[in-house]
């Protein structure tokens, strides 16, 4: 039987956070309802590998994007440290100037015609994913008192269950903006927060071409059964 325990203390941001001022507008004031975990929660959408092209993991348009070329790669596992094949990982990020190709990003910074800023990959038989991209720039948050988001890459991950679905952000080692960032600092536990920082790892980079960063992901749930062979259907 698949098991889903509560998150370990401190490993997730609080629902309301004084650091991240916007939660006071949006995050619920009532406590979460504790309800039984049912078939509806232990199932979730599965994504066929055939539906995602290998090319979609290259955000650089074949190396034409401006900025520091890099590889982001890692392994997706469950809480028992079992690799999870067949997991959809989506990435989106700002370009090297810290600008998103998005109508809401009104800042006067250049777009890169060779950088859209989104990609996706499905984990292989060992639960591994890999993106080729450029290191994103920092950018200021409007009307925030000159708060600058540190360089980060957003990741959206679908496990095998509605309960294991999660969205996170990858930060870069040694960036002084990390400790000033309300969103990064919203994770109370020091170790849990540090796990959001990628590890410099030249072995996953491209020799004399692209820096390598490792970022492993742990999805909620224990005793997961790899589902790659069974029923991965659209």
């Amino acid at each position: 039987m698949v098991e889903y325990a509560s998150y370990p203390e401190g490993t997730q941001p609080g629902v309301n956070s004084e650091r991240y001022f916007r939660t006071s507008q949006l995050a619920p004031s009532q406590p979460f309802v504790e309800a039984p975990v049912t078939l509806s929660e232990i199932t979730g959408p599965l994504f066929p590998r055939e539906g995602v092209s290998q090319d979609e993991a290259d955000l650089t348009a074949g190396g034409k994007a401006l900025g520091q070329l890099m590889v982001l790669a890692g392994q997706v596992r469950d809480e028992d440290a079992r690799p999870l094949p067949g997991v959809l990982v989506e990435a989106w990020q700002a370009n090297a100037s810290g600008k998103y190709r998005h109508p809401v990003d009104g800042r006067d910074a250049p777009l890169d015609p060779h950088f859209v800023g989104g990609g996706r990959a499905v984990t292989d038989s060992e639960g591994r994913y890999r993106f080729v991209t450029i290191k994103p720039g920092a950018y200021p948050v409007p009307n925030s008192g000159n708060w600058w988001r540190p360089p980060h890459i957003h990741l959206s991950i679908y496990g095998y269950a509605f309960l294991s679905r999660m969205i996170t952000q990858v930060y870069f080692p040694g960036d002084p903006l990390n400790e000033l960032d309300s969103i990064f600092m919203s994770v109370p536990d020091d170790a849990a927060r540090e796990r959001l920082v990628a590890v410099t790892d030249t072995s996953v980079g491209l020799h004399e071409h692209a820096l390598g960063y490792g970022f492993d992901i742990v999805l909620r749930g224990r005793n997961q059964t790899p589902m790659e062979d069974e029923g991965l259907q659209a």
């Binding site: 370990p8 991240y20 440290a81 969103i183 919203s186 849990a192 796990r195 959001l196 909620r220 224990r222």
Partner: peptide, 10 residues
């Protein structure tokens, strides 16, 4: 062996 889930972010 048990490892903690990755932290959620906005």
């Amino acid at each position: 062996m048990s490892i903690a889930p990755t932290a959620s972010q906005t």
